[in-house]
Simulated assay, not measured.
Amino acid sequence: MKLPGMWLRHRVTVEPYEGDSGVGPLFGDAVLVRCFLEQKTRLVRAPDGREVTSGATFYCRLDAVTAPPESRVTLPDGRQTTVINQARNDGGGLPLPDHLEVQLV
């Protein structure tokens, strides 16, 4: 089951992190993503195990975007932030909404 369209009230722009170069990070093409944005401070775990403070999280459909850690995200108010981690939530055939949870700095 997909996230219902009525829940996807916000739009963010995601530039997927593709690695580093001699002049800084490399990002893929910008993708506009329909999502539900929750701007709430909470403690999350980064991929390396560190505890990090997240200032926002967005939820979107699984097929909407790939947002690996360090990807750049532009929020609806124009503020740019960085992906801490992403989590795929798949209902496994149960009547639960499959979605991607993306935690932001």
Score class of each variant (00 low, 15 high):
90 D>I: 06
27 F>T: 08
76 P>L: 01
23 V>L: 14
7 W>P: 02
88 R>C: 05
38 E>V: 07
46 A>D: 14
66 T>E: 12
6 M>P: 03
37 L>V: 03
37 L>H: 07
87 A>E: 14
42 R>W: 07
18 E>V: 04
105 V>G: 10
31 V>L: 05
6 M>S: 10
12 V>H: 04
51 E>N: 12
45 R>N: 12
55 G>I: 06
81 T>W: 01
44 V>W: 02
95 P>R: 13
91 G>V: 13
87 A>P: 00
93 G>Q: 08
35 C>R: 04
95 P>E: 05
70 E>A: 08
4 P>D: 15
60 C>T: 15
29 D>R: 11
12 V>P: 00
46 A>Q: 09
16 P>K: 03
80 Q>P: 03
101 E>H: 01
17 Y>A: 03
62 L>G: 10
103 Q>C: 00
18 E>D: 09
104 L>C: 12
14 V>M: 06
64 A>T: 15
75 L>Q: 13
20 D>P: 02
19 G>V: 07
96 L>N: 14
51 E>C: 04
88 R>D: 07
103 Q>R: 01
89 N>V: 04
48 D>H: 04
23 V>M: 07
103 Q>L: 03
96 L>D: 08
88 R>F: 08
64 A>W: 09
76 P>K: 06
105 V>A: 14
3 L>H: 13
50 R>T: 05
57 T>W: 05
39 Q>G: 01
1 M>A: 15
22 G>D: 15
104 L>F: 08
74 T>G: 06
85 N>L: 03
100 L>H: 09
5 G>Q: 04
62 L>F: 14
52 V>M: 04
70 E>L: 10
62 L>P: 14
